[in-house]
Amino acid sequence: MIVQALAFYLFAGVLLASALMVITARNPVHSVLFLILSFFSAAALFVLLGAEFVGLILVIVYVGAVAVLFLFVVMMLDIDFAHLRKGAMQYVPVGIAVAAVLLGELGMLYLSWNAAPDALLNRGAPGALLAGPTNTERLGQLLYTHYAFPFQVAGLILLAAMIGAIVLTHRTRPGVRRQSVATQHARQARDVLEIRKVETGKGAV
């Protein structure tokens, strides 16, 4: 048990520290790198919880794909953060005030928290369907039965997002030469080549 506890504190500590660094790092690229580290630590926490599928999917999707594109954009943008920060400082008191209020509310909530008596019973409700030895199989079973509908709608949402991304960014530029592999393959030597007999001393015309 002690190893698990140590691992938990290690990853949780790294998670919090790197999350803090995300917002305090001066260089935006460093911020993103810390963000990636915090994603990674969160994934490790999932693995510690025994949710290995979710943890690894977090690494594959967020660390391996989303954050790469993030980093890509941040590296290309070359934002002058010092300039941006200058104006932002005047909002700090407001931000702190809002955060303090929220924190206070959460604290009050924590002190007076009591879940509904049948909460545990409710929480187990979808689990009644579960069978299968690994949590990957169980997740699959829940996702494709009980939550099949939200799952499908999530697909529609992604479709809408994809259409949106294309609509808002794709432009057809005139004068771009594109490679058409099919045309290239369809080209025959006799269509484009001609063998001419050049007489000596005359040169090609």
């Binding site: 879940a115 509904a116 049948d118 909460a119 409710n122 409700a125």
Partner: peptide, 17 residues
Amino acid sequence: GFTGSIDFGLIHSSLSK
């Protein structure tokens, strides 16, 4: 977190207690 469910019916029955 409070009711242990996201189903309308179950939330209703939890809260009505």
